[in-house]
């Protein structure tokens, strides 16, 4: 699969750009966090496209960003379950 470039992205409409990046991110995230892959991908897709392209080129940065997303998600879920009594 050829790498995703800024010019490839620029040729697509904004919503499609996120989908294109998501299609690249998802398998990488799925390999690390199978059950949370869709959610984590969605969270990361809120980052600027230019930064997402950098993450795709840097497995180490991507991994730390994924770990950050998991931590945020778990903290959020813990809060949710505490508040979800009414």
């Amino acid at each position: 699969q050829e790498p995703l470039t800024a010019s490839m992205l620029a040729a697509a409409p904004p919503q499609e750009q996120k989908q294109m990046i998501g299609e690249r991110l998802y398998p990488l995230i799925h390999a690390m966090h199978t059950s949370l892959a869709g959610k984590i991908t969605g969270m990361l897709l809120e980052i600027d496209n230019s930064e997402l392209l950098l993450l795709l080129e840097s497995p180490e940065s991507l991994r730390s960003k994924i770990e950050e997303a998991v931590a945020v998600l778990q903290a959020h879920q813990a809060t949710e379950s505490t508040h979800k009594s009414g």
Partner: peptide
């Protein structure tokens, strides 16, 4: 430090990635 990631983000649905069952 506070993370910029949003836990309420919409879940991504892959078009092409086939999940092994």
């Amino acid at each position: 430090r506070k993370s910029t990631l949003n836990p309420n983000a919409k879940e991504f649905n892959p078009r092409s990635f086939a999940q092994p069952k």
